[in-house]
Design a protein around this nucleic acid. Structure first.
Length: 499
RNA sequence: GGCGCUAUCGUCUAGGGGUUAGGACGGAAGAUUCUCAAUCUUCAAACCCGGGUUCGAUUCCCGGUAGCGCUACCA
């Protein structure tokens, strides 16, 4: 008899609120492609008032690690979208077994006593058409039972229909009508010889049991779906809807992998480099999906509103990273970096400051919230990654300016003498003026006039003296935040450098 | 090898039988500002190839090519 707990799941899945799932297998860190799958599922669930299920697909005991589970949670925690229900397949082995044997009892599976293939070395290249191990499909039930009872190990395989007319079909929300001859599908395993369920079986049994209505996953599962249709049918479960996502690939067109492409494929690399989760999500959504209205920069709320399965396209998307990159910024897809800068600028000063402060403190600088808040508006438009605060605003929190070339102090069309004159003048002016934007502006422009110099020629030496480099935020705001004491001190040491 | 999927600027994409094939990133040039950044303007840059169908295909059909995926007692 079929197990009733499986069979009774046959109900109308389409009329209820959608239930979607993200089902990573813990064999490594959270991959950006997985993160995108998670995000698309989440967006779909949220836009339809549905339920988001997180399920750890950990049936491959040999390859699963606890460290990987942790790193997946770490990645998801940063992405910060959350989920409604959580399961682990290893807690549900009983269900899988029952499902497998229910299929067997229905005559849709058979025991395969052929020893497992040892060498998986020749996985690529010309492989003969493998559909089933000879002799095993035809084994009588009696003999099969007898050999099993005798303790002979076996795998349980799905008995795929072999009539050439049998066709498996389903509709994919992205790829449309899909059909395949059953005779082109191999007799895939349901249970391993150690009794553990395979991915296909566990996944489908769980999807049926958890009443998943929409399976949104990577396109690498598109051809597996034919097997899944077979399993759902054998389980007498209603078929969920499918939506396969085009894959994320590397610039060389190959699938993203840690071995080949390094840490760039890990979600935490984006976090550590100073991406905002919202920008990261935004970026990923633009790979393989489009709102079709030329919108690019979108908040999470906007994405939720705009997201539809119809907007997903079919071709693989390249994540345009550079692996050996001179700077962290250059290693990421330029569009991701640009989006991050956009999201940074869109953040209120208080919020941006709050995100920047831990980074600055983490680098060993003492800084108060109030100080951070004054610095933030000055660098807001000058940083692309959060970590850029360390280089863009260093002169605010460093006591000693790093070494710089005294030649930098020399203004346009000027010489060292002019630089010296400017700095001396600035010194005396700044000693008396109020350190606020407007008075500074007025005093320094007047000083420039008195020296017969252009404003730029006056400001540049002061800027370099104060900041240690030519490129910095506007001068008066900077000096105002820096304060009289540090400014004068730095001008003094710049004058000394000039000698 | 078998089966499946895909193909628009360097990249992400919009579009669709008749368009100057649109946008964005990146690139180049310029404007602007005390430098940088931001902002603005301008420029370069694409329909894989070959056959059909059609008055007309980048768009529809077929074939080719290329890429990707699956082809495990991995997921």
């Amino acid at each position: 008899m079929p197990d009733p707990s499986i069979a009774l799941k046959k109900e109308d899945l389409s009329s209820s609120a959608p239930r979607v799932r993200f089902a990573p297998s813990p064999t490594g860190f959270l991959h950006v492609g997985s993160a995108r799958t998670f995000i698309f599922n989440w967006l779909y669930a949220r836009s339809k008032a549905g339920t988001m299920v997180l399920r750890l697909d950990d049936t491959d005991v040999k390859r699963n690690t606890e460290a990987s589970v942790q790193s997946i949670f770490e990645g998801l925690k940063w992405v910060n979208l959350g989920w409604d229900e959580e399961y682990k397949q290893s807690d549900r082995l009983d269900l899988h077994q029952k499902a497998a044997w229910a299929i067997f009892e229905r005559g849709l599976a058979y025991r395969d006593f052929t020893p497992a293939h040892t060498g998986d070395a020749e996985k690529s290249g010309a492989q003969g058409t493998w559909l089933f191990n000879p002799g095993m499909r035809e084994l009588s039930r009696e003999e099969s039972d007898r050999r099993a009872a005798a303790g002979e190990p076996f795998a349980l395989r799905f008995l795929v229909p072999r009539q050439s007319v049998d066709e498996i079909r389903f509709t994919d929300a992205v790829y449309g009508e899909q059909r395949k001859l059953a005779s082109d599908v191999e007799d895939f395993a349901l249970l391993r010889s150690d009794g553990m369920p395979t991915y296909h079986l566990a996944s489908c049994a769980d999807d049926a049991d958890l009443r998943i209505t929409h399976i949104i996953r990577g396109q690498d599962h598109l051809s597996n779906t034919f097997k899944h249709v077979l399993i759902f049918n054998a389980l007498a479960a209603q078929l969920p809807s499918f939506a396969h996502l085009p894959l994320l690939v590397a610039p060389d067109g190959t699938k993203l992998s840690k071995r080949r492409h390094g840490p760039i494929v890990s979600v935490t690399s984006y976090r550590d480099a100073g991406f905002l989760a919202a920008a990261f999500i935004n970026f990923l959504c633009l790979l393989g999906w489009s709102p079709k209205n030329d919108r690019e920069q979108m908040s999470l709320a906007e994405l939720q509103e705009l997201f539809t399965l119809e907007g997903i396209n079919r071709a693989n998307a390249v994540v345009n990273f550079k692996e050996p990159a001179p700077t962290p910024e250059e290693m990421f897809d330029p569009k991701a970096v640009w989006l991050n800068a956009e999201h940074i600028r869109a953040l209120p000063v208080e919020e941006l400051g709050a995100r920047l402060l831990p980074i600055v403190r983490g680098a060993g600088h003492n800084l108060t919230e109030a100080q951070m808040l004054r610095i933030t508006p000055l660098i807001r438009e000058r940083i692309k990654l959060l970590r850029d605060v360390l280089t863009a605003a260093d002169f605010f929190f460093l006591d000693q300016l790093p070494q710089y070339d005294p030649a930098e102090l020399i203004p346009q069309k000027g010489d060292a003498a002019m630089a010296g004159k400017v700095l001396e003048k600035a010194r005396s002016v700044l000693a008396g003026v109020e350190f606020k934007h407007d008075p500074l502006d007025q005093a320094l422009r007047t000083a420039a006039q008195e020296l017969g110099l252009k404003a730029g020629q006056m400001f540049q030496p002061i800027r370099v003296a104060a900041c240690g480099r030519k490129n910095a935020p506007p001068l008066f705001e900077t000096l105002e935040v820096l304060g009289r004491e540090k400014t004068l001190q730095r001008i003094d040491s710049a004058i000394a450098k000039l000698q």
